[in-house]
């Protein structure tokens, strides 16, 4: 809990890391000033790109005492405004799951190598980033906590599978190796409430450590304060749940 007598400082800037395949990619890195040790978080941007909203989310985590890094998962697709880059990526069917997992692994390794890390790292993502967060919790063993916000396409039917996304993430549920926090809006069209039910039922059957919170008045992207879909009370509660979950698991 912040009190007004606390000193507070933060450094935030763009850095470069070696991602999947050794490719150099940009990442936005925000961290509190001070010796630490600090817990860390990899912040996974959504399909609209490595945008201002995600830089603000990254700084929000730093403000709460986390070493926060948000890799530009679209770094290889050219440089331009986040919207132009994201539009180009969308036209190519998104980025491959393997490439994304490689970039997330590299981001986590980078942040864990810092002298002021406490040795624990979580990940947070919304929409396609929520899907990537869940997949990372199953396919990588570096994360200690997973926050999946309305992961779209965690449950995919066969017609949605592509060369870049060859398997539905829920097929990997049995491999989930970190506690999972899931946040969903009941008015979301995707994931639908039925898909969230299925997702939860599969986690339960596999005996996984998870907690789901569902907001009856919220739709897709309810934490996006720059979109009409923003739902204030759900968003405020969801952020509280995010920080409570992270404090319990990686602080």
């Amino acid at each position: 809990m912040y009190t007004t007598d606390q000193f507070e400082g933060m450094i935030a800037n763009t850095t470069t890391i070696k991602g999947y395949n050794g490719d150099e990619i940009n990442a936005y890195f925000a961290r509190p000033e001070g010796p630490g040790p600090f817990p860390a978080i990899v912040v996974i941007h959504h399909l609209p790109g490595w945008d201002e909203l995600y830089r603000e989310f990254t700084r929000k985590f730093a403000h709460h005492g986390y070493l926060a890094i948000s890799p530009d998962l679209y770094s290889r697709e050219g440089k331009g405004t986040p919207e132009d880059v994201a539009a180009a990526v969308r036209a190519e069917g998104g980025v491959s799951d393997d490439q994304c997992m490689g970039d997330l692994q590299a981001s986590a390794e980078f942040i864990l190598s810092l002298p002021n890390s406490n040795g624990k790292v979580g990940t947070f993502g919304t929409c396609s980033g929520g899907r990537h967060a869940f997949l990372a919790g199953c396919k990588l063993d570096i994360f200690d906590a997973i926050v999946e916000c309305w992961g779209g396409n965690v449950i995919m039917n066969s017609s949605q599978l592509t060369e870049k996304q060859p398997k539905s993430p829920n097929e990997f549920t049995s491999q989930l190796n970190a506690p999972l926090l899931g946040l969903f809006g009941d008015l979301d069209q995707s994931p639908t409430p039925d898909q969230v039910n299925q997702h939860e039922s599969e986690l339960k059957s596999a005996n996984k450590n998870y907690e789901f919170h569902r907001y009856p008045e919220a739709g897709h992207g309810f934490m996006y304060y720059d979109r009409p879909i923003y739902h204030q009370s759900s968003s405020v509660d969801a952020w509280q749940k995010v920080f409570t979950f992270l404090e319990k698991n990686i602080s």
Binding site: A86, A87, R90, P228
Partner: peptide
């Protein structure tokens, strides 16, 4: 490229 997806700016979900 014609998408049926989230817009960047228009105020609807799809």
């Amino acid at each position: 490229n014609v998408f049926y997806d989230h817009p960047f700016h228009a105020p609807w979900e799809y």
